[in-house]
Design a protein around this nucleic acid. Structure first.
Length: 801
RNA sequence: GCGGAUGUGGCGGAAUUGGCAGACGCGCUGGCUUCAGGUGCCAGUGAAUGCAAGUUCAUGUGGGUUCGACUCCCGUCAUCCGCACCA
């Protein structure tokens, strides 16, 4: 009889839910295992098959762990604050709350149809009051500890629209909406001081098991560099200009200095700088440049030489000019550099254009042509002359600077503080009040959550302010400190806030007293295995590690690092090989696949289609292959014979497959695990019959991938216990090897024959067996044997001349 | 520019980490079943050459190490992904 996946899948999904087998048990005696997948953003488009692949990896592992006797926490939730929902609301006038609830319902039903073994009792939604109460709570703790602060920074701003624009919306220096010129405006924004944790975020990577490229991307993002700070005296003042450099040993080669146009010292000394008008004109011009222009015009350096404002080289005592140029960024280092044109290509380009001196201090290149950045002997460098090792010369110079009191060793990070506020409606309100007398005051903890009020119009105001600013009942309040009239902060938190701690809430999702009870945090501990997309490695992953470390410092969580292990799945591309997108119309809807082929086929295919960590295109016809596999598995019932154990012919095949599947699942090699099961299935059909014991083992192995058909067969076999809770099969290593094996016989490295020998055959016996072979003899006849070797279980190679 | 990854049949991909290249699946060809389409089942399927047993060539490309290289080393080309005037 044909397998009716529709009724079987609905039936088993209902049974799993009724029996509660996938519920994680707090404080269970069993060993715990916490598997985490990145929770989805519930967009209106619904899920696509990429989500299914992302969850199927740890789904298989979770099901295996339960069978192995673990108490598994495998939760799911929704990261529901964000722009797409808000934009949809602006367009349609439907409230984001309604849209979000509808989308979450759709996502949930899609996930349930696939039969994922999530603990649905622990579902969370970041936009619910009982959740974001704690997001706000963590923010306030950061505020209390000085990690949340306001600062002025440069942003893209359209003076006509009175709105802050992103770089994408301000290309070519024109406003995307009104086409007037964009200016860089300094604006007061909220920051989280993630840089305070830069070093620990880097060092913490030693304690965890992340995929190498995940780790590397985080290291690059944090971008630690070691070097030195050097203070250059400004001529005829008591002022010093401080710079950061990774090569303090090239100090004798410094022939000028460059400051960022926005450097505050310029304003301080505008009376001394006789061409300050030029400075201001340059500032205006460079402020107009977009990020795009700045990076595209790398070769073409611009700048202004300051008149009446020069520096003294601390090692040579020579006077050197100071320039301003936008190739120096205010946001990195000190906003000023010492230029070593002979050994830095950017400085070299600038020196050539502005006629500055080029002094070679490291031998080995041709500084007539270009800057030399390699290693070599130090020259023209006073006490450093003769040094050939970079490390030594840097150390010697740093020692000199520190003794003279004109500099010291130091480190810099590329990572910047996290700009944290958005002028948007659909996000967590920032729980801060502005009081004329008291300044910024935190909303008292007992008043959390600070609820997001209902509004009618979700569009940001023409002044670039959040829609919340238009609600007097929300804005106007009293100062929690002095009781006088005050104003609320009207901006909301960014998309990334709620996801920065969600893995902790799963541990105790309904707690009203704390974000999670301490004893439960102690029990569940770190996330044992976290899987998600590469696109979240440098933002969500870093942000959430930062929040977690902060909570650890407060003593609120037991571990410093949140995730013990991190992996990432590859994308599913459209059938055309392009990235799936709505505009290209190549998106595959999991519902369609479930309708036509069933959930088991979908689950099996997304893991079988290729290397789990690599991108692979969707192929409708390959899906059919998995459909056949599921149907043929069902068909085993037709060739069922009595017998609990393995038949003699299949015994070693079963032991080998149990081993292979067990190991492959642990190593994300789902595709070869499924291939091994297909091979075993073919072997069974070749034999023509299957014992009850064999079939039971087969479905036990397949169950994590295709649980519905396995439960159905399990029931047909008369098993009272659910397949979901039955034990994972074990294997005997001794039975994974055959008594007799086939080896290849090579002559001069080329395969000329194959023969069967006993597995425990020794080297001499194998070689002489090979030589007895007629084919082999014809190849060695009349030639001299130079060398004979036997690789155990693999081959014999005879080298002849 | 810097960093990382990848390159294997018509396609997705395997290869115990230096040991029989192409597992498994798709597709294709032929056959059986069928009024027919689909399903299902059986056989074949890297290329060249040969009636055939076979032989030769093949893992982007050029060299090298080795009895033996998809795997290690040096060079080179292509594609993809990060970061990007980071001092």
């Amino acid at each position: 009889m044909a397998y009716d996946f529709k009724s079987a899948e609905a039936k088993w999904q209902a049974k799993w839910e009724q029996s509660g087998v996938f519920h994680a048990v707090d404080f269970s005696e069993k060993k715990k295992f916490y598997a985490l997948v990145e929770f989805p953003y519930p967009s209106g488009a619904g899920m696509h098959v990429g989500h299914i692949k992302a969850y199927s990896g740890l789904e298989v592992l979770s099901r295996k762990r339960r069978k192995e006797g673990y108490n598994v926490l495998f939760p799911i939730g929704f990261d529901a604050y964000g722009l797409p929902t808000e934009n949809y609301a602006i367009k349609t006038g439907i409230h984001p709350r309604i849209v979000t609830d509808k989308n979450i319902e759709k996502f949930s039903s899609q996930l349930k149809r696939v039969g994922f073994s999530f603990d649905w009792d622990r579902v969370i939604d970041t936009t619910k009051e009982d959740y974001y109460k704690w997001t706000q709570w963590i923010f306030l703790k950061m505020f209390e500890h000085g990690l949340a602060f306001r600062d002025k920074t440069l942003v893209n701003y359209c003076p006509s629209c009175k709105v802050v624009l992103s770089n994408e919306d301000s290309q070519g220096g024109k406003c995307d909406i009104c086409h007037s010129d964009i200016i860089q405006k300094s604006k007061d924004v909220w920051y989280l001081r993630i840089t305070a944790y830069a070093d620990r975020l880097l060092q913490g990577l030693d304690k965890v098991d992340y995929l190498p490229n995940v780790r590397l991307q985080q290291e690059n993002w944090i971008g630690k560099s070691t070097g030195a700070f050097v203070n250059f005296k400004i001529k005829d003042t008591s002022e010093t200009l401080r710079v950061y450099t990774t090569r303090p040993d090239t100090l004798f080669g410094v022939t000028f200095m460059v400051m960022a146009p926005e450097h505050p010292m310029l304003d301080q000394y505008k009376d001394r700088i006789s061409n300050f008008a030029e400075v201001e004109a340059y500032r205006a011009a460079s402020a107009k440049k977009t990020e795009f222009e700045r990076t595209q015009l790398v070769k073409d350096k611009t700048g202004v030489k300051l008149s009446g404002f020069s520096a003294i080289n601390p090692v040579s005592g020579k006077e050197i000019p100071i320039f301003i140029s936008d190739y120096v960024m205010m946001g990195y280092g000190t906003g000023a550099i010492m230029a070593v044109p002979a050994h830095d290509q950017r400085d070299y380009d600038f020196a050539k254009k502005f006629g500055a001196d080029v002094v070679e201090v490291i031998k080995g290149g041709d500084i007539e042509k270009e800057a030399y950045t390699g290693d070599g002997e130090m020259v023209n460098s006073g006490f450093l002359n003769g040094y050939t090792n970079k490390k030594d010369s840097i150390a010697a110079m740093v020692k000199f600077l520190e003794e003279k009191g004109v500099g010291e060793a130091g480190v810099q990070f590329k990572m910047k503080d996290w700009a944290f506020n958005r002028q948007r409606y659909w996000g967590e309100p920032i729980p801060i009040v502005y009081c004329d007398d008291c300044g910024m005051v935190a909303v008292p903890y007992e008043e959390l959550p600070l609820k997001l009020p209902k509004v009618e119009n979700f569009a940001p105001g023409s002044d670039g302010e959040s829609p919340l600013a238009k609600i007097p009942e929300f804005v106007n309040c009293t100062c929690p400190k002095c009781g006088k009239k005050a104003r609320r902060e009207t901006d909301t938190m960014p998309q990334w806030a709620g996801s920065s701690w969600y893995f902790l809430r799963y541990i105790d999702p309904r707690n009203t007293e704390r974000f999670a009870a301490r004893d439960k945090l102690d029990y569940w501990g770190m996330v044992d295995w976290y899987n998600g997309g590469m696109e979240h490695v440098t933002r969500h992953m870093i942000y959430s590690r930062f929040w977690h470390k902060f909570l650890y410092d407060l003593g609120e969580v037991p571990y410093d690092e949140p995730y013990a292990k991190r992996t990432a799945q590859g994308l599913i591309l459209g059938p055309d090989g392009d990235k799936m997108s709505k505009s290209k119309g190549n998106v595959v809807d999991p519902n369609d696949v479930v309708d036509v082929f069933g959930a088991d086929v979908l689950r099996t295919y997304v893991l079988f289609m290729g290397d789990y960590e690599k991108a692979a295109p969707w192929s409708e016809s390959s899906v059919k292959g998995c459909k056949r596999f599921i149907d043929r598995t069902w068909g085993l019932l037709d060739i069922l014979t009595d017998g609990e154990g393995y038949s003699k012919e299949l015994e070693s095949a079963f032991h080998k497959t149990v081993k292979k599947v067990s190991e492959d699942i642990e190593n994300l090699k789902y595709n070869t695990a499924i291939a091994a099961l297909m091979t075993l299935l073919n072997t069974i059909y070749d034999k023509g019959s299957v014992t009850r014991g064999e079939l039971f083992t087969f479905i036990s192995l397949l169950d994590p991938f295709a649980p519905h058909v396995c439960e159905e067969i399990n029931e047909k076999l008369g098993c009272a216990e659910l397949q979901a809770t039955s034990a994972w099969p074990t294997y005997d290593p001794a039975k994974c090897v055959d008594d007799e094996i086939e080896i290849a016989v090579q002559i001069n490295g080329k395969v000329r024959a194959r023969l069967m020998i006993p597995a425990d055959c020794g080297s001499d016996a194998a070689v002489s067996a090979a030589k007895e072979n007629a084919d082999v003899q014809s190849f060695i006849a009349g030639k001299t044997v130079i060398k004979e070797l036997y690789v155990k279980g693999r081959l014999v190679n005879i080298v002849v001349k």
